[in-house]
Design a protein around this nucleic acid. Structure first.
Lengths: 197, 197
DNA sequence: CCCCGTTGTGTCAGTAACTGGCACTACGTA
DNA sequence: TACGTAGTGCCAGTTACTGACACAACGGGG
């Protein structure tokens, strides 16, 4: 009975998260998730290509939102300022939905296979950010470098915020970019040649 | 016959790479790899925890080399200068072994599951770099930020080098760090507040 | 020289992630 | 009311991986 499709998908997401939390990702079978969601195991794999992806269903929207935030940044901004603009929006969303997202983070952090998938998703987001920068006219090479390093700073800030939520994520974000400026301003341009060994 | 153990392992690495190149990762079974290496399928999984890991066997050494290069950088250098020192060494190794490594890169680039694993390995390397920085006295937060962003710049350089090998990797590496300095020096410290929506 | 602990391997049975194919059911629409 | 479509159940099959047990080669000590 194909009542809604989207409904089954929602229940599958829910059931998967619950079970992953209760008994761990590795100790949970796709059949169990499907059973709790009231559908067949086969149906699970029709909605999600694999057992991990069920936890990353919202990443498509996130990617779109990120690209849009980059596109909507005021004209004339330098690449890092554009990224700061976009990351602030994304960070706002993170702060708002933290209570809902936290159990999900917990499962991912505890499961190597899920952390792998998360890194892959991040790479996918970085590509979107780089492309959005290019659309604004940023040179391809610079866009790639800015997206990669800017994302790295963002992730550092998120980690710091998770460890120390007292200060808002936006505070950590500003600090990360400030510290990055301090770090890179000290690097000597000259090569320090070491003898080849 | 446990002639050597390390020998079987070497043959397994070799056979796996060959088969992944010939017919693709997904179209290759562990049993086939084992057969070509002259051992049992079970033996494959005794040497490698899964089908992907067989392509990343050298990453332990790389991690150690990277940590050592960070440790051996001259005293008194700022974090990014230390990283530049370490990445130059790593880059030298990359340039030297490129012909041997290229087929491996090709397989990884063509296989999503392998790119996932590669990203996980990179995260593991970044952790090692951050820890090595901390051992030198760099504050934990700064070490994490520097390792993440420095690695991002390094990977940008590697990508640029793969796309355009005419200039050496070290040239791309210097340029990446220079461009990163230029990028981050332009970011405005003040927050540009956008109304919450 | 033989005994023995260690290490690497082969074999077998089993679990579970996924996939393809086919039939069926609900639903919107002409 | 007939029909196309989307979502689902069921079944059979492949393959990644695991645990258990037995066996073979090697090394050293008596």
């Amino acid at each position: 009975m194909p009542r809604s499709g989207a409904e089954a998908r929602r229940r599958l997401r829910e059931a998967a998260l619950e079970l992953y939390l209760e008994r761990g990702f590795d100790q949970t079978t796709a059949a169990e998730i499907a059973a709790r969601a009231g559908v067949n195991e086969r149906t699970f794999f029709r909605h999600f290509p694999d057992k991990r992806e069920v936890l990353f269903d919202g990443d498509g929207d996130l990617r779109a939102a990120l690209a849009q935030a980059v596109a909507e940044a005021p004209d004339g901004l330098e690449p890092f300022a554009v990224l700061l603009h976009a990351f602030r929006r994304s960070a706002q969303e993170l702060e708002n939905t933290r209570p809902y997202s936290e159990p999900r983070w917990k499962v991912i952090a505890a499961t190597p296979a899920l952390r792998e998938r998360e890194l892959a998703k991040h790479a996918w987001l970085v590509e979107a950010v780089a492309e959005a920068l290019r659309r604004r006219g940023t040179a391809a090479g610079v866009a790639d470098l800015a997206a990669r390093t800017g994302w790295a700073a963002y992730q550092h800030a998120v980690q710091a915020w998770v460890d120390e939520p007292a200060q808002g994520l936006s505070v950590h974000l500003e600090r990360a970019f400030d510290e990055l400026r301090a770090l890179s301003s000290t690097a000597p341009p000259g090569p320090d040649r070491t003898p080849p060994n």
